[in-house]
């Protein structure tokens, strides 16, 4: 798979990262390198290997369904830039 500058700009867009054209070119070279590495790895036959979904071979611990958290709104909101009526205020997200 060949990556283009357009792909890089789209990925940047999805990740909300602002990059200029020069940076995009540089990132393209780096990403292409990573893609080549992946291609090399994919040429290895792994059909007899179980897919690894986590770096450790342990399984998920579960907790009992109990309410253990108390209301910490005051301390949480103490570090928020802006709050009102118990709400966190953010720049308007709807047109």
């Amino acid at each position: 798979m060949t990556l283009t500058v357009t792909d890089v700009k789209r990925i940047a867009d999805l990740a909300y990262i602002e990059i200029d054209h020069g940076e995009a070119e540089a990132v393209l070279t780096q990403l292409t390198g990573i893609f080549n590495l992946i291609e090399t790895m994919q040429s290895i036959d792994t059909s007899s290997v179980d897919p690894m979904s986590h770096a450790q071979s342990v399984t998920q611990r579960l907790r009992d369904d109990e309410v253990t958290e108390t209301n910490q709104r005051e301390s949480c909101q103490a570090i928020a830039p802006q709050v009102e009526a118990g709400l966190y205020l953010v720049p308007k997200v709807i047109e």
Binding site: Q82, E84, A85, L87, Y88, L89, V90, P91, K92, V93, I94
Partner: peptide, 12 residues
């Protein structure tokens, strides 16, 4: 998200 007017901001 509450989009009523909080001085031009949204409430979460």
């Amino acid at each position: 998200s509450l989009h009523e007017d909080f001085h031009g901001m949204s409430g979460i």
